[in-house]
Amino acid sequence: MLREPDGEKPADLEVRFAVDIEMRAVDDTARTLQGYAAAFNVKTKIRSWSGEFEEVLEPACFADTLAKQADVRALVEHDYRSLLARTSAGNLVLEEDARGLKFSMNLPDTQLGRDTYENVRVRNYTGMSFGFMPLKMKQDFDERGRLVRVSHQSVDLREITITSMPAYPKTSVAIRSLITRSASLLPGSLDLRLRIAKLRA
């Protein structure tokens, strides 16, 4: 089991929100929640300082994370102090199927665990989100060198979170690491295209 340091900065992660994803309370005694934290092949428009592009998660993009048994955490509202479960403890189980990233978690017998379960049960919490670092992606550009589509083929999943606001955050923050990470994954390519886009704009 690969353990990640507890002090990791959430701000370093890409954050995406799964809208209209199933999540439900299934066992009052064990306080079990089940659902999907991410969906495959769902097109999402993301706005950035360089324009707008489309993003999708390809099937099996979480396979590397699952194969290496990374220590993924389940949180409330991306707050690392509000820890609900983690894969290394065995109370968070993640798997991929044809639809997306499926999860099952047993919440602790704490005030946070009980409150979270009740809020899901009464539909106060209706959304899921996930934090990741991109590892492998396919990028498409238009004739002006602007990024128009990103297909994530492999990502390093660090967290899933229960949220009351399943909508994208401000894009300047949301895609900052994607832009810089893309440049390192594709040396020179994205940097050159961004320069061309600025010159032609």
Rank of each mutant, 00 (worst) to 15 (best):
A167F: 05
L190I: 01
K198W: 06
D140G: 04
S151K: 14
E55S: 15
I21E: 15
L157P: 00
E95W: 01
F130A: 08
V148E: 12
N91S: 08
A74S: 11
D97S: 06
K170T: 12
F62H: 04
R149Q: 15
K138H: 15
G35E: 00
S151E: 15
T29F: 01
T163A: 03
V148H: 03
K68Y: 00
K102I: 10
A63R: 10
L147V: 04
L84P: 04
F132S: 05
S50M: 09
L66N: 07
E118D: 12
K138F: 02
P187F: 07
R146E: 07
L94G: 00
I162C: 02
H78V: 08
L185Q: 13
K198C: 01
F62M: 11
K138R: 13
K198A: 14
A67S: 09
V120P: 04
K198G: 03
N41G: 11
Q111Y: 06
F103W: 04
T161W: 00
R16M: 14
F53E: 06
D20L: 11
Q111T: 05
A37Y: 05
I46S: 04
Q34K: 06
V56P: 09
A167K: 03
V120A: 09
R81N: 07
R31C: 00
A85Y: 09
E22A: 10
L13R: 13
M128A: 12
E77W: 05
R149W: 09
L185Y: 03
L57V: 08
E4Q: 10
I179V: 13
L199T: 10
R31S: 05
D156Q: 12
N124H: 01
E14M: 13
A183G: 10
E77T: 12
L192C: 11
A70D: 08
F141G: 02
Q111N: 14
R121T: 12
L84S: 02
R114F: 08
E95N: 05
R99T: 08
E159G: 00
S184I: 13
S182K: 13
R24D: 14
T171V: 02
K68V: 11
H78Q: 10
A11L: 13
R193G: 00
F53V: 08
R158I: 06
G113M: 06
K138D: 15
R86K: 13
S164Q: 08
L92A: 09
V93T: 13
S48L: 01
G188T: 05
L185I: 00
L186R: 08
A30S: 15
S154I: 10
R158S: 01
Q34M: 12
A63M: 14
T87V: 01
E96D: 05
A11E: 14
E54H: 09
R181N: 14
V19D: 05
G90K: 07
R24T: 10
R16W: 13
T116S: 03
M105H: 02
R158H: 15
R73G: 08
S104G: 04
A197Q: 13
V155N: 06
L75P: 07
